[in-house]
Amino acid sequence: MADAAAEMDAIYRLQRHIYDASRKYYLLGRDGLLDTLDVPLGGSVLEVGCGTGRNLILAARRYPSARFFGFDVSGAMLETAAASVAKAGLSRRITLGQADASRFEPRDLFGVDGFDRVFISYALSMIPPWRETIDRALHAVAPGGSLHIVDFGEQGRLPGAFRTGLRAWLRKFSVEPRAELEAELRRVASETGASLSFERPFRDYACSAILRKPSA
Score class of each variant (00 low, 15 high):
167 R>C: 03
115 F>Y: 03
179 A>N: 05
129 P>C: 08
169 W>M: 12
178 R>E: 13
113 D>L: 05
194 A>M: 02
192 T>D: 03
173 F>T: 00
165 G>R: 00
185 L>F: 04
169 W>N: 11
153 G>P: 10
114 G>D: 13
125 S>E: 15
173 F>H: 08
132 E>W: 10
126 M>Y: 01
122 Y>F: 13
171 R>C: 01
142 A>H: 04
183 A>V: 02
178 R>A: 09
189 A>L: 06
141 V>T: 04
132 E>Q: 07
124 L>H: 06
124 L>R: 04
170 L>C: 04
117 R>V: 14
120 I>G: 12
140 A>E: 03
163 R>G: 01
113 D>H: 07
145 G>D: 12
177 P>I: 10
129 P>A: 07
180 E>I: 10
148 H>W: 06
133 T>D: 05
184 E>S: 07
140 A>T: 05
165 G>I: 00
143 P>H: 08
153 G>E: 04
156 G>P: 07
155 Q>A: 15
178 R>F: 02
187 R>H: 12
143 P>K: 14
123 A>P: 02
169 W>T: 12
139 H>I: 08
120 I>D: 10
125 S>V: 12
129 P>V: 08
183 A>F: 00
161 A>Q: 05
192 T>L: 01
147 L>F: 09
178 R>N: 09
137 A>V: 02
157 R>C: 10
175 V>I: 11
154 E>I: 14
145 G>L: 09
163 R>T: 01
134 I>Q: 03
168 A>R: 11
152 F>G: 07
153 G>W: 13
124 L>M: 05
180 E>W: 06
125 S>W: 05
127 I>S: 12
147 L>D: 07
167 R>S: 08
159 P>S: 02
177 P>E: 09
120 I>L: 14
133 T>V: 05
151 D>K: 08
179 A>D: 08
174 S>D: 06
150 V>F: 01
186 R>L: 06
116 D>K: 08
158 L>N: 12
125 S>P: 13
164 T>K: 06
194 A>N: 04
142 A>Y: 02
184 E>N: 09
130 W>M: 05
152 F>L: 12
118 V>T: 10
193 G>D: 08
182 E>Q: 14
158 L>G: 05
148 H>R: 08
141 V>I: 03
125 S>H: 11
